[in-house]
Design a protein around this nucleic acid. Structure first.
Lengths: 199, 199
DNA sequence: TCACTTGTTGTACGATCGTCCAACAAGCAA
DNA sequence: TTGCTTGTTGGACGATCGTACAACAAGTGA
């Protein structure tokens, strides 16, 4: 009887991604309070000590996870735009409405996001990552609004306002799903866009 | 030389309030991660064991603090309305704009709020408290909107949308203050209200 | 002045935390 | 096969966590 290997050596990049994925799942399931080295290691099917081998500190793994999850959200939004009709307004609607459907409108994603927010003041660099994330969202929104005929001088405030409205609806939708439906959220956002684009 | 008392016995209600106040200050300063029994006890100038004497568990103190901070925010909003001109629209503007000025637009209040959000899924009853808090905010908003001539059928969606816009602006204003100014936030919110009230 | 009640203290306890590191073994080169 | 590199393990370490509880003393009534 030949004993099978107790573990296998993984490609460093693949292992990093595996740890990041495990961290994201733990944050989604248990929030920031449950994201300990040991919990993440169990989730990744790995020894606790291995995390220290790939990340100087747990905070660095969490920061890397922030970037990963942020990119995933960005990709989901972009996919929604790509799947929409080619008309500028349809693309704008798709971008905005995507925040009220899976995989973005999800209590677990909110839990993950809250965990990140709770670290913005503590971890250096986390604030910069947040700023970048929101800047990218607003820039994308501004381009879509511009394609709908919104003149450049009004673009900045419009993008900020739409971002705020979408974030507020998304937050409440995840926090207490019984208050209003995703369809209602989409309708409210589109009505806001109507008024914005018209005048 | 007579030694002065090592401690003084306090009125139970006053002591409870003192502990709640200390918990609020710690949450504001350090977030949920720093809100330990010992930290709160030091903040209150009291022995760690005393907290267990007034609250069955730390979670109960935090829940009580949620109610306390929530009431404080509600009072600040109401004070802003009371200080405004008597015209319905001025009162509505005051209510909405108050979220973008002290003491509500404050990074420490956001940290406190994030701490509460992070416990909504864990602590039973916390979700109900959040729902109550937001329901009260929307109801107050709906009344102010109604006074501005908004017909009753449109009231629900209007209140939800304005709440979301205000929350989103407040969140981003606290999270990255350099992105836009409180005045800009107020202007954007008022413009939204203009469109809402007009048509 | 002297019990008596009880608010308050300080610590013990077990669990869990992040970090560190010596020992082990998987996989590759020779 | 043999030896080497290094990804991986698993536990040690000190700190901190929430809770429980025996001992103490402040304030009150007799």
């Amino acid at each position: 009887m030949t004993s099978q290997p107790a573990f296998r050596r993984a490609d460093p990049d693949a292992r990093r991604q595996s740890l990041i994925g495990a961290c994201a799942r733990v944050l989604a399931r248990e929030g920031a309070a449950g994201a300990s080295v040991r919990t993440i290691a169990v989730e990744a099917g790995v020894s606790p000590g291995l995390i220290g081998h790939y990340f100087p500190a747990l905070d660095d793994l969490i920061a890397a996870t922030y970037a990963h999850v942020g990119a995933r959200v960005e990709a989901a939004l972009e996919a929604a735009v790509a799947a929409a009709a080619p008309e500028p307004r349809a693309r704008l609607d798709a971008f905005v409405t995507a925040s009220f459907a899976a995989p973005i409108a999800d209590a677990e994603l909110l839990a993950t996001w809250i965990a990140f927010w709770s670290l913005v003041r503590t971890l250096p660099g986390m604030a910069a990552q947040h700023d970048g994330q929101y800047f990218a969202f607003r820039e994308r929104l501004a381009r879509l609004l511009h394609d709908c005929g919104l003149p450049r001088p009004r673009l900045r405030h419009a993008a900020i306002a739409v971002t705020a409205l979408v974030d507020g609806l998304w937050l409440e939708l995840c926090l207490s799903p019984g208050c209003f439906t995703p369809d209602e959220a989409g309708a409210m956002a589109r009505q806001f866009l109507d008024r914005l684009v018209e005048g």
